[in-house]
Amino acid sequence: MKSPPFSYIRAESLEQAFDLIDQYGEEARILAGGQSLMATLNMRLSTPKILIDINKIGGMDQIKLDNDKIVVGALARHTKVANSSDIKKYAPLVSKALPHIAHQAIRNRGTFGGSIAFADPAAELPAVSLALEASFVLQSRNGIRTLPAKDFFLGLFDTALKKDEIIIAIEIPIIKDDENYSFMELSRRQGDYAIIGIAAQGNIKSGIFSNMRLAYFGAGDRPLIAQNAINILEGERHTAEVIKAVEESLSLDLDPMDDLNGPASMKMHLARVITSRTLAEISA
């Protein structure tokens, strides 16, 4: 299908983007990489009056090391993030997740910030951000605020981003020496949205788990942290009993929905399978 008619303005600066948001309000949508927005327009699921294209705003696609964190500009495209040696070194969980995001032609356009703002519950980067305890830098005309990922995702495609705000960067704490990570995703075709997936990172010292973060996608109406499972793991070794307890606890944390891939019970089963595989990999 073709998208309904809309108008288009290219913002050359954040200032201009804020002006346009003020001017058009609810009728406007921000266009970043467009890899989800354009599809919803073509399917007429979304009918904005005007698109504000922020792709040409300078300096918002940089990846920079800043003391103990790595700062990814919101407009950094997935391919750029995938090719970044700093990301590979300091945020390897992101590198591991990126090949699972759609396909090359889409990764060449899609942006990190766009994926966060869209907040698809089956998308990789929102869950990865939770597992990394990343924060999002949100700017409006009134200033800048930084919000932890855990406070950002509120529900189905619903976030704490206010109507007059734009995500300008993602701040990721760099991986610590005694941390390990893993990422697993089940999908029908390489690059399709996940049936279920997990992004995990945490401390594993002398075989003992601590400060683990298990974040799931495709497991509910938003990316979810499995806090009960994390509590069980704290201070424990990788034993059959611990893993069993973790698997059993997942029904408290996750809330998958029936969809075309299968029933919720199947997804819950698959969540347990990838959780045990992930924890085995992290503790190996």
């Binding site: 467009g34 354009m38 294209d53 391919t79």
Partner: peptide, 15 residues
């Protein structure tokens, strides 16, 4: 220099 989905990019963006 990079492949894209022609259906997910506006002609206006190719300016």
């Amino acid at each position: 220099g990079s492949i894209v989905r022609g259906c997910l990019m506006l002609a206006a963006q190719a300016d």
